[in-house]
Design a binder for these strands. Sequence first.
DNA 1: CTGTTAGCGCATTCAA
DNA 2: TTGAATGCGCTAACAG
Lengths: 345, 345
Amino acid sequence: MAHNHKITIKDVAKAAGVSTQTVSRVLNNRHDVSPETRARVQEVIANLGYAPNVLARSLSRGRSNTLGVVGFGLGYYGSTSVLTGIEQKSNELGFSFILSLLDRFEMERVDEILRDLLSRQVEGIIWAVPGISQALRGLPKKLSDIPIPVVFLNKEKTNDDAIAAMDNRLGGHLATEHLLEQGYRRIGIITGPAEWWEAQQRELGWRETMLEAGLDDLDNLKVEGDWTAASGEVGLHSLIAKAPDVDAIFVSNDQMSLGVFQAARRIGMEVPNDLGIVGFDDIPEAAYFYPSLTTVRQNAKKLGAIAVEQMAKFIQAHQNNEDFKPDISWVKPSLVVRKSSIQES
Amino acid sequence: MAHNHKITIKDVAKAAGVSTQTVSRVLNNRHDVSPETRARVQEVIANLGYAPNVLARSLSRGRSNTLGVVGFGLGYYGSTSVLTGIEQKSNELGFSFILSLLDRFEMERVDEILRDLLSRQVEGIIWAVPGISQALRGLPKKLSDIPIPVVFLNKEKTNDDAIAAMDNRLGGHLATEHLLEQGYRRIGIITGPAEWWEAQQRELGWRETMLEAGLDDLDNLKVEGDWTAASGEVGLHSLIAKAPDVDAIFVSNDQMSLGVFQAARRIGMEVPNDLGIVGFDDIPEAAYFYPSLTTVRQNAKKLGAIAVEQMAKFIQAHQNNEDFKPDISWVKPSLVVRKSSIQES
DNA sequence: CTGTTAGCGCATTCAA
DNA sequence: TTGAATGCGCTAACAG
């Protein structure tokens, strides 16, 4: 037992008195093995505690059953939810995955990471890095040079890419529409960083809805945050400086809402009566904010799962040399109404 | 370029007019290659865009440079921080890792996960699952049956295990001591689930500090939560039912504090004047709670990094057949004082 | 300094 | 139904 020698298919074959191929057949559940032989081999496997060497198998089969996932830190609720979805679904479909985390938009490491993933023979790469910032300009080229399937998360639609995306624009619309229904009119926005596609889309949803309602002066109603609570705090001050009569804000994520709440308290504005607030994400804490936060709930876990499903199809097509028409799959968010947007009578 | 044939060391060798062995030497930065040959080979590698097949290399070398990490969901701030630390440090040390997530304490999947990791030839396993619940009774046996190094995160000290642990007991002490210094006397605790070692240790720190201060009736001052804000809310009500004169609470994580805040507001208790609160974790939002939350900051990222470092040493010893004396490494938390525990004069 | 031979553990031809 | 040979891509051990 404590012997350090790793037991291989050979040991099993010898112990069972058969050839290695037969053992291999049993391992792969082939039906061209006699029941008795199969039983004997299985018993030996159990006794020896044998476990096949996946590396050898991958090498021999030319398939690794491994995905590469490139993410962007784990600091956001969305990121971790997506990852959870990816983990579960890939498990379900028999893939394992190698996780690479980008901390900032670091061009240099991208090269390195992609090389590394390819070296590890991943069968596909899920690109779960937000936005396409300036710094990543050259990236699409690189990723399309890659000889294996790539599925993007939350990326703008293009013709040739497989994409799974949250409908952030719809989210922005839902939030704004709700505030309008509550009677707010001067509805501002605190966006996320401009490079983030997510932030852009949420803003777009707000913008379109405002215009449709005949409201304008939108530029004075917009400030940019960086997703942190601190930036939400600053954001409210900036917004009021530009538009003193702002009466509601669509805040592009829940953390920033927390900062807005704090700033509002300091300057004596009352939420929701003086200022209606709608956030985005529905982090678990949102229901316990004071006041509880109306917010757009996004099922990021589902998004991750969908990405993996797409990937599985993509890979299959790729291997059969069939042509695969990459497409975009949308996940729709929903509005969760709480107190921060409902004026008390 | 678009040719689907994967280029191997052979292609490189042929193109460079050398043997595969020489290419291998260049790849591995051996110094027994002539500068000209090396240059030529490197050029060919660059031109062909060759990347070595890590699976083949691992198989041949008998080393995978891969770690297995078993975690417990990504729902907690601590979990994700630990994982971030693990990712960074293992990257730094040249390991990649396979992540397996347990969602609940699911005994069955443990077997499966361990087998899978071993199949993938990981060189060591980092066990980052909290506590040793009833359900995991059999686990230590299994893990010690494993023929590769295992490093545990946040586990009680034993003689034979390599452990990296947050000093939660110290954290509990710091929190309680601080509340005592602020003049609070009837200091309650809302703990995490009893099976979690982390929760036990935080409680122990509180308990010891209270006893040292000559305070007792501790059982009436304790209720158990489940880490969620909702359980914090319930917790305060329960606590007041048992000890109506409670004047402060050490809440074992920040999320539950949020629930306590909400409950306190509902029943007209003012934090910190009627009720001092200290949390645990220092999640990014804690500074923006209302009131801002005094809490115990734990550097979980560092914890993850330390675990990987231990693992690296362990693996090295394991391979050289040296004996490795497993030990426990502690990471010390610190107190961050904000408004929830400082009575206004 | 370089090439040849062998083998890592497994699966995929083929024969028998 | 089973076994023998061969190769996946790479590196280690030996020669030269």
